[in-house]
Amino acid sequence: MSGPNTEYDPVEVTPLRADEVEAMRDAALAAIAAAADLEELKQARLDHAGDRSPLALANREIGALPPQARKEAGARVGQARGAVNKALGERTGVLEAEHEERMLVEETVDVTLPTSRRAPGTRHPITTLSERIADVFVAMGWEVAEGPQVEAEWLNFDALNLGADHPARTMQDTFWLEPAVAALVLRTHTSPVQARTMLTRTPPIYVVCPGRVYRTDEIDATHSPVFHQVEGLVIDKGITMAHLKGSLDHFAAAMFGEGISTRFRPSYFPFTEPSAEVDLVCFVCRNGDASDPADCRTCRGEGWIEWGGCGVVNPRVLVACGVDPDVYTGFAFGMGIDRTLMFRHNVEDLRDVFEGDVRFAAAFGVEI
């Protein structure tokens, strides 16, 4: 039997030649030294120490050598890879230190400065909506009128044709102020502003009156003893219900989008004659334009939503406020601002509007 063959011809594998291994090592060390930040060093690591790097590929070629040549080639490649890994570790430490120093300079915070833990507030949505409503009518050439919230009984009731025996005068609806002989109330509507306007101005009159009002209602999801109304008043020659309808259609479109119209249902108010309740086309199902209007949660399949009241100004109100009803006619309307806000933004509980939680108001931003 013959012995092992110890004589062989070394197989020349180019990537494993000493000069090639040295060139790979030197290229890797140069790339590592040139890395200016951690991102560039990461790329250098992938290019020269990753699984597809030249030294890693050369290491795989060692298996192609005869057994007696593998030790020398393995040592040569291993030393080169060790030098690269050592350079990577040293350069990583240097760049991480530089990064931390730079961050300390760029992100310095003066902890001695005074600060506040209070969250920033925001304008209340009722305020912004009131101003938006006023803007709609100012753009039409109207004026904004205001009046006191503590009002004279005569302006709140008598001037508006609410007689002494009208149920709205009772304690069930009105907050009366003491002493009783002062005949002062917290206004139950913004209509006294209309009376004040007619008493102090000469027609033609085009005013809108947004404001806070009070009634002795129990607070629940849809009622509050404090709420907000907007009323409009027009006094001029030749004013008809047609002018009222057009004004309210424009108002509704401004609040709820194009294509929203109104309808009138006969009703009774002491200060207007004829009078009507104002309904809106449902802004969700568009009065049946939706695929299944019967499922509409907003109008429950009716196609219309009650919005407020309106009518032609009663001649008795004109006389009480010094306006000649034979020369002038007019119309008036009143809508709840809170109700409008609930419609526009799907607010389900009126108490959310008044409880003062900044998280509720913050959702509306500065404009709605």
Rank of each mutant, 00 (worst) to 15 (best):
Tyr8Thr: 13
Val13Ala: 09
Val13Arg: 08
Thr14Asp: 15
Leu16Phe: 05
Glu20Ala: 15
Val21Ile: 15
Val21Gln: 13
Glu22Pro: 02
Asp26Arg: 12
Ala30Ile: 05
Ala31Arg: 01
Ala34Tyr: 03
Ala36His: 03
Leu38Val: 11
Leu41Phe: 12
Lys42Ile: 05
Leu46Ala: 12
Arg52Ser: 14
Leu55Arg: 00
Leu57Phe: 02
Ala58Val: 12
Ala58Trp: 13
Asn59Trp: 06
Arg60Leu: 15
Glu61Leu: 10
Gly63Cys: 05
Pro66Gly: 13
Ala75Thr: 14
Ala75Gln: 14
Val77Ser: 12
Ala80Tyr: 12
Gly82Trp: 12
Val84Ile: 04
Lys86Arg: 13
Leu88Arg: 10
Leu88Thr: 09
Leu95Tyr: 05
His99Ala: 11
Glu107Trp: 07
Thr108Ala: 14
Thr108Tyr: 14
Asp110Tyr: 03
Val111His: 11
Leu113Arg: 12
Leu113Asp: 06
Pro114Arg: 08
Thr115Gln: 07
Gly121Glu: 02
Pro125Gly: 06
Ser130Gln: 13
Phe137Thr: 07
Trp142Gly: 11
Val144Gly: 10
Glu146Ala: 13
Leu155Val: 09
Phe157Leu: 11
Asp158Trp: 04
Asn161His: 08
Leu162Trp: 03
Asp173Trp: 13
Leu177Lys: 10
Ala183Val: 00
Ala183Trp: 03
Leu186Arg: 07
Ala195Arg: 11
Arg196Gly: 11
Leu199Ser: 05
Thr202Pro: 04
Ile205Ser: 04
Val213Arg: 00
Tyr214Phe: 15
Tyr214Ala: 08
Ile219Trp: 07
Ala221Phe: 01
Phe227His: 13
His228Ile: 06
Gln229Leu: 03
Leu233Asn: 07
Lys237Val: 03
Gly238Ala: 13
Gly246Thr: 11
Ala252Pro: 10
Met255Cys: 09
Phe256Val: 03
Gly257Phe: 04
Arg263Thr: 04
Arg265Gln: 08
Ser267Asp: 08
Val278Pro: 05
Cys282Met: 07
Asn287Cys: 03
Asp292Ser: 11
Ala294Trp: 04
Asp295Ala: 15
Cys299Thr: 00
Gly303Ser: 10
Ile305Glu: 08
Glu306Met: 02
Gly308Val: 08
Gly308Tyr: 07
Gly311Ile: 03
Asn314Pro: 08
Arg316Tyr: 11
Tyr328Pro: 12
Thr329Ala: 15
Phe331Ala: 09
Ala332Ile: 08
Ala332Gln: 10
Gly334Cys: 10
Gly336His: 09
Arg339Ala: 00
Thr340Asn: 03
His345Asn: 08
Asn346Gln: 14
Glu348Thr: 00
Leu350Ile: 02
Arg351Gly: 00
Glu355Val: 08
Gly356Ala: 13
Ala363Phe: 02
Val366Trp: 06
